[in-house]
Simulated assay, not measured.
Amino acid sequence: MTQSPYDVKTVVLRKNIDKSEAMDIVEEKKTDPFKSLLSRPKKEDVHVHSLNLYYECILMVSGKYVADYFRKANHTISVDSNVHEVSLGDGIFPIRSKSGITKAFVGSRGKNKIDLKLEEHVFVEEEDVLTFDHHGRDVEFPFKIDSKTVENYPQQLLDENIQNTKKSEMTYDDAVEKLQTQLKKPLETDVRNLNEEFVLSDISEIFIPIFEARLIGPKKKVAIIRIDAVRKKVL
Rank of each mutant, 00 (worst) to 15 (best):
E27S: 11
N161T: 04
P33A: 03
M60F: 02
K219C: 00
I58H: 09
D7P: 04
K98Y: 03
F207M: 09
L158S: 02
K113D: 15
N82C: 06
V106L: 05
D18M: 00
D115S: 14
E140D: 08
A223Q: 02
E44W: 08
K30M: 14
F93G: 14
P154A: 10
K221W: 00
I206T: 09
E160I: 01
S87T: 11
L183V: 03
D32N: 07
D7Y: 11
N16F: 02
D190Q: 11
L116W: 08
T181M: 04
I92Q: 14
T149E: 12
G91S: 15
V222L: 06
V12D: 08
K185P: 00
G136T: 00
A67C: 10
D173W: 02
E212N: 00
I58P: 01
I95K: 14
R192L: 05
G63R: 05
N82G: 10
K72P: 00
E160D: 05
D68Q: 12
K232N: 14
N161Y: 02
G89A: 12
D115L: 14
Y172F: 15
E197G: 11
Q3H: 08
V61S: 04
V46L: 10
E28Q: 13
K184M: 12
E120L: 13
S201C: 06
L38E: 01
E151A: 15
K117S: 15
L38D: 10
T102R: 07
V26Y: 02
E160N: 06
K98I: 05
I95M: 09
V191P: 01
K144M: 09
D45S: 12
Y153Q: 15
E197I: 12
D190E: 14
Q3S: 10
F123E: 15
K43S: 15
E188M: 03
D202A: 14
L116T: 14
P5L: 10
G217R: 01
P186L: 03
V86Y: 07
R71D: 11
K29P: 00
I224S: 01
K35G: 06
H121P: 09
Y172H: 12
R40M: 07
D32M: 04
K233M: 09
K185F: 04
N164K: 00
D190S: 07
F141T: 08
Y172T: 03
